[in-house]
Amino acid sequence: MSKINEVKELVETGKSKKVGAAVQEAIDVGNKPADILQAMVDSMSVVGDKFSSGEIFVPEMLIAAKAMSKGVDVLRPLMAGDNSASLGTCVIGTVAGDLHDIGKNLVSMMIESAGFTMVDLGVDVPAENFVKAAKENDNVTLIACSGLLTTTMPALKEAVETIKASGLSGCKVIVGGAPVTPEFAAEIGADGYAADAGSAAVKAKELVK
């Protein structure tokens, strides 16, 4: 098996203790860092698909994301200043009045694994803070808003409306959470909706390309 395929397999199976060394070996035999990164992104895409189809569960997805993160740690110093593989920055947060972070964290990990730089605003985020973060950070291409409760659906609406009214250009808005439907997402003016973390990564890539 080629070193790059070994990295892919280690990411897919969540072997975080072995990935760092495998990435280093892949570099040592002449693979380009950008190609190794792309291989890991591809692995996470497979992981996301398997999660969305119910073949694997949250823990398996989490350990894969953790493994990729270990691999990226090895690549980072070699790729400083090389943004060719980056899909831009994604600002993410759970909307005002909602303290739930599990879904948001899972989505954040998967979107990061797809090639975005993440700015995580945490939970209970007022609508204007999404806009502020998008203005303060470079190359924000996506804003992701999460809400678990039916009672915070109005806050999701407010967040999307505030972002859209702010004059930010070149950045798309994706929403999700247990009570959110594609119809609701469209109704409040979001550019995209995803039902789970795996499809959120797919949708995120689609929105910014």
Binding site: G54, I56, F57, V58, P59, E60, I102, G103, A178, A195, D196
Partner: peptide
Amino acid sequence: ATANGLFMSPKV
């Protein structure tokens, strides 16, 4: 569980 399914596999 989440709204979509168990957090962990039934086996786990």
